[in-house]
Amino acid sequence: MSQKPLKRHKALQPLSREHHHGLLLSWKIRAGFSKNIEPERIKVYADWFFKTHLIPHFEMEEQFVFPVLESNNELVKKALEDHTLLKRLFEDDHIEIALSQIEKALDEHIRFEERVLFPEIQKAATELELLEIEKIHQETDFVDKLDDQFWK
């Protein structure tokens, strides 16, 4: 019998919603490739998303969420390695190859955090730690860059 998934604590729900937008970035990259959009156009959007949304998200996780577990925890190490890889891919000058790798790596990373890491963090966190995360990370409405909707 399979276990019922753990309901996400409200302190982590804003991060999960941010993950949804990250999955949409992966989808938009795939859609751009499927429509034969110039990689440079896709890269402009991806770079904007990276600077505006991913960097702050990574910083939040690294400073306040991951420390719930021990720093030598294998799941935390994997998440940090994923963050490092993604940062390197966004800086890669081989745009088409980098975008293809970003699309795949970001999708896999988010699914790992949602399905494996966050449930472990939620189980290990004290109510005080979760309240602190909730207090520090106030959700804002997602604002998208819609001047070039290449994915449509």
Rank of each mutant, 00 (worst) to 15 (best):
I42N: 05
D47N: 13
Y45P: 04
F50V: 01
E38A: 08
K43I: 04
F33A: 05
E61F: 00
K104A: 10
E62K: 02
N72V: 05
L89M: 06
P56L: 01
E62W: 02
I97M: 14
I37N: 01
L106D: 05
A46C: 14
H57S: 03
W27C: 03
I110T: 02
I55Y: 02
V76Q: 06
L23P: 07
K104V: 11
E108R: 11
I95G: 03
R30A: 08
I97V: 15
E81A: 15
F50T: 00
E62Q: 05
L23H: 10
P39N: 02
E96N: 08
V44P: 07
E38N: 08
E40V: 10
G22H: 12
Q63C: 04
P56W: 04
P56R: 02
H83N: 04
D47V: 09
E113I: 06
H53R: 05
I55A: 02
H20A: 03
F90T: 03
F49C: 03
G22T: 09
L54F: 06
E59P: 00
L99W: 12
I37H: 00
H57N: 04
K78F: 12
G32P: 08
R111V: 07
Q101D: 15
E61W: 01
W27E: 07
E81C: 12
L25I: 00
L54A: 00
G22L: 10
R88I: 06
E62G: 02
R115F: 13
N36P: 01
T52E: 02
D82Y: 11
K35Q: 08
R111T: 07
V68P: 06
I55H: 01
L106V: 05
L99Q: 14
L86C: 12
E96S: 13
L106P: 04
H53V: 00
E70M: 04
L85M: 14
E114T: 09
V116H: 15
N72A: 10
S100C: 13
P39I: 00
R41M: 05
F64D: 02
R88M: 13
N73G: 11
H21P: 03
H21E: 10
N73E: 13
A79N: 10
F66G: 04
K28Q: 05
